[in-house]
């Protein structure tokens, strides 16, 4: 009914954190500019990882919002959600947001967390040149 709103809300919060993190990283980069680049261990900045999460959440929420429009659950006039016109439907909608919506946000965040761990491991792994075949 409106389960995508939970992911959309999380996306807004993550976007704000991402912007803050970008500023912090920019300041840190200026202060650490004297350090030799060769000594710095390669790693993916947190702001970039947060951007992945934002994109997953926003992308999913937009396409799910379209599905809700398709099913007539979201309308272009106030109160925008058809479930809001009836108290029983509103209660059902809130229950769905608390169960399905929260589960969606949790799964996406969990997948993103695993994705970050795998990405960190890949970045630390030395690049191996593919063996050349002898003609």
């Amino acid at each position: 009914m409106a389960c995508f709103l939970v992911s959309a809300a999380e996306a807004a919060v993550v976007k704000a954190v991402e912007k803050h993190e970008e500023k912090v990283e920019a300041q840190a980069a200026v202060s650490e500019s004297a350090v030799n680049e060769a000594e710095v261990e390669p790693k993916i900045p947190m702001s970039r990882k947060l951007k992945w999460l934002t994109r997953l959440l926003i992308g999913g929420a937009v396409l799910l919002a379209f599905e809700h429009v398709w099913h007539g659950e979201v309308v272009p006039w106030f109160p925008f959600l058809t479930a809001m016109s009836d108290p029983a439907d509103t209660a059902e909608m809130l229950h769905e947001m608390a169960t399905v919506g929260v589960s969606m946000a949790v799964l996406i965040t969990a997948v993103w967390f695993v994705m970050c761990k795998v990405a960190d491991a890949l970045v630390k792994k030395p690049v191996v040149e593919p063996e050349k075949t002898i003609a």
Partner: peptide, 9 residues
């Protein structure tokens, strides 16, 4: 990101 996000949801 868009398709994977929607698929997970």
């Amino acid at each position: 990101f868009m398709y994977w996000g929607a698929s997970l949801m």
